[in-house]
Amino acid sequence: MNWLGLLFVFLFVALLLGLGATSRGVKRELREIPAFARLASGIGAAVEAGRRLHLSLGHGGILGQPGASTFMGLSILQRIARTASVSDMPPIATSGESVQAILSQDVFQSVYQTIGAESQFDPNSGQLTGLSPFSFAAGAMPVVFDQQVSLNVLAGSFGSEAALIADAAERAGSMTLAGSENLTAQAVFYASTEAPLIGEELFAAGAYLQAGASHNASLMTQDIFRWLLILVILAGAAARLVGVW
């Protein structure tokens, strides 16, 4: 039995719930991340200009580490859809994996239900554009070019093929914000987009988009565990240095 793993999960959940309960209603100062500031202004500008928002969820599916960035992408989609669904040009989501496409349609449907406009829901607003990384990118590029998109958000698991989508956005004159859990994609985003999300910044999206107290608690829990990990690494290095371990 993996007691250490179980203890880790238990502590993580306990801190998440505890901090979530105590930080409810407390406003926490967050350091500025340019991508999230641009996202807020970009959504407003798109709605005002009658242009479309495009969110791409990548092709990582919902399992493993890529699954976490997919869920973050879906959370961002939920926030975007709530804000922009009243626009003349409702947002559009592209995916490179079937379950993601179905979940994106589900997000759109639930948002339209929430605002009482279920008749406006279009199942094609959550699209599967291809089942391999390159076919996904090739299928997402026409959306960027032809659907009058003013802001592209790439949030999910991508590889180097994300450069094709980012390049299409640049040529179409639209802005791109991007984040992924994949290191290759992060390097590509750093070079190709105006506002890349580096490291774990993608996972802070909920807190920055004010998606609820649980996201703030999540950030605090991550910080606590990060410091614990730093201490463990330093202690391990020191123990190795003096020959104890």
């Binding site: 999960v9 998440l16 580490q65 960035s69 859990e181 996972f203 999540s218 991550q222 990060r226």
Partner: peptide, 9 residues
């Protein structure tokens, strides 16, 4: 850490 937090949430 971000992935664990997201998954557990």
């Amino acid at each position: 850490l971000g992935a664990i937090a997201t998954g557990l949430r």
